[in-house]
């Protein structure tokens, strides 16, 4: 029953020896490569710094990518929205494009931490932290976002569905790669989205449950064409409730169908028991409520008001 030294003793001093500030992406990638696994990317730092202080993370070199111009900005490319790797949780909801065409993402970002943290923390960082209930990751997952990852070997694009591996672990290697872009399709007029969050207090609080829903509907026929349901933490990674999504494809947009979908989603996912953020039983019950509410609201936004 001996508890670890790190859980009982704290130091304010962070254990890294070099801080590098590259001016271009190529420079950054070269610095990482030269670091041979000892260097690590830092952007907003809202995860990296506390993790270094907790000694959960070890790095002797930090490569600060926040001055890379190629990683900035929110743009529209056709029907796609593209976010640079440095877009912060404050910038995303401040963009009219995001609010109007990806409202669920705007809401998710606005729920992260505090105004000060949102001014620093990036959406890319939210993804890379690999936390199963991250507030920006869940809506991005529901939006079928894809990310571009750069390394000295070149660029690759990975759909978010394949991005997360385990708690705190993704396909991206922060000792040699940089997440440069996040891309997803903007919601159209026949689409709707919803973001819901459950927490013990109303700000500065990690969630007990996060749910993001995206639907495509035929309002005339009152039919659900497609539904995407992302949930966290119900698995080690941000989770797409694929079975429920499949059951909704082509289904009638009715309260009964949605209630059934909520029941199914709840039965299929297995959140762990957490002393601080809720029992499995409770969170399963909440999945039921959130999937029902999320689908209902998303359908409303898609022009499909339920009777």
């Amino acid at each position: 029953m001996a508890h670890a030294f790190e859980k009982l003793h704290w130091s304010r001093e962070l254990e890294f020896g070099q801080y590098l500030t590259p001016g271009s992406l190529d420079d950054a990638l070269q610095m990482l490569a030269d670091g041979k696994g000892q260097a690590r990317v830092i952007a907003g730092g809202t995860d990296v710094i506390p993790e270094l202080r907790r000694r959960h993370l070890k790095a002797s070199i930090l490569v600060d990518i926040t001055r890379l111009p190629e990683l900035r900005g929110i743009t529209q490319e056709g029907e796609d929205i593209v976010l640079g790797g440095l877009v912060t949780h404050a910038q995303a909801p401040a963009s009219a494009l995001i609010r109007e065409r990806a409202g669920l993402l705007a809401q998710g970002c606005a729920a992260v931490g505090s105004p000060q943290i949102r001014n620093l923390g990036t959406l890319a960082g939210n993804l890379i932290s690999g936390q199963p209930a991250a507030d920006a990751s869940i809506p991005l997952l529901a939006l079928d976002a894809r990310v571009t990852i750069a390394s000295l070997e070149g660029e690759r694009e990975v759909p978010l569905k394949e991005f997360f591996l385990d708690v705190g672990k993704t396909v991206l290697d922060s000792t040699r790669e940089v997440l440069t872009r996040i891309r997803f399709r903007a919601l159209g007029p026949d689409q709707g989205g919803c973001y819901l969050r459950l927490s013990k207090r109303k700000a500065l609080c990690l969630p007990m449950l996060v749910c993001a829903v995206q639907v495509t509907a035929d309002p005339q026929a009152k039919v659900i064409k497609e539904a995407a349901i992302a949930l966290g933490p119900v698995a080690p990674v941000p989770f797409r409730e694929v079975r429920t999504e499949e059951s909704l494809r082509g289904a009638a947009a009715s309260r009964q169908v949605i209630a059934q979908a909520a029941e199914n989603a709840s039965a299929w996912c297995s959140p762990r028991d957490s002393l601080l953020r809720g029992s499995c039983d409770y969170r399963q019950e909440m999945v039921k409520v959130f999937v029902r509410r999320g689908l209902t609201k998303a359908l409303e936004q898609a022009g499909c008001t339920l009777d």
């Binding site: 029953m1 508890h3 859980k7 506390p50 013990k200 207090r201 109303k202 700000a203 500065l204 609080c205 990690l206 002393l275 601080l276």
Partner: peptide
């Protein structure tokens, strides 16, 4: 009433930081 509790397992406090020992914010 709503959120505060020092959570202890095997004698060790699990929520030693203000990240998980919750006190009310302006919104609460």
């Amino acid at each position: 009433a709503l959120m505060e509790e020092v959570v202890i397992t095997d004698g060790l406090i699990q929520n030693t930081s203000l990240q998980n020992y919750l006190i009310p914010t302006t919104l609460d």
